[in-house]
Amino acid sequence: MNNTLLIIIAVVALILLLLGGFNQALQFLLWVGIILLVVAIILFIVRAMGGRRGV
């Protein structure tokens, strides 16, 4: 009984640890995506104001 309980606790702790790591990785990727989006918008605005007109 004690071994089974320890295995269950270890598995739950491992799952929570992995989910916590994935959550931090997803938050990092979310910030990278937001920064890239802002840079793309700024470049689009600069290009539109630059006077280069497409046909």
Rank of each mutant, 00 (worst) to 15 (best):
V32P: 01
I9P: 01
L26I: 13
G51I: 00
G33L: 06
L29P: 00
V12G: 02
V55T: 13
F28T: 05
L43A: 11
T4R: 15
F44M: 09
F28V: 06
Q24W: 07
V38I: 10
I34W: 14
V46H: 05
I41P: 00
V39C: 03
G50T: 00
T4Y: 09
I41Q: 04
L5A: 10
L16Q: 07
V55S: 15
L43C: 09
V32N: 08
L6V: 06
L29V: 06
Q27F: 14
L30R: 14
A40M: 08
V11K: 01
G21Y: 01
A25N: 07
L43Y: 12
V32C: 11
V32I: 10
L30H: 15
I34V: 09
I42M: 03
N2K: 09
I7F: 13
M49V: 13
M1Q: 11
V11Q: 03
I41T: 04
L26S: 15
L36V: 11
A25M: 14
A40Q: 10
L6P: 00
R47E: 09
L14E: 07
I45C: 03
L43H: 11
A10I: 06
L36S: 06
I7N: 10
Q24Y: 09
F22Q: 15
V11G: 01
G20V: 01
V32A: 10
W31V: 02
V46G: 03
F28M: 12
L14Y: 03
R52M: 05
A13F: 11
A13K: 01
I45R: 03
L19D: 12
V11M: 04
Q24H: 13
M49D: 08
V39E: 05
N23S: 15
I9M: 14
R47W: 11
L19C: 09
F44K: 14
G50A: 05
F44E: 10
F44C: 12
I8M: 12
N2T: 09
L14A: 07
Q24P: 04
V38E: 03
A25I: 09
L30M: 14
R52K: 10
Q24L: 13
N23Y: 14
R52P: 00
Q24V: 15
A25D: 13
L18F: 06
V46S: 02
G54Q: 09
V55W: 12
A40I: 01
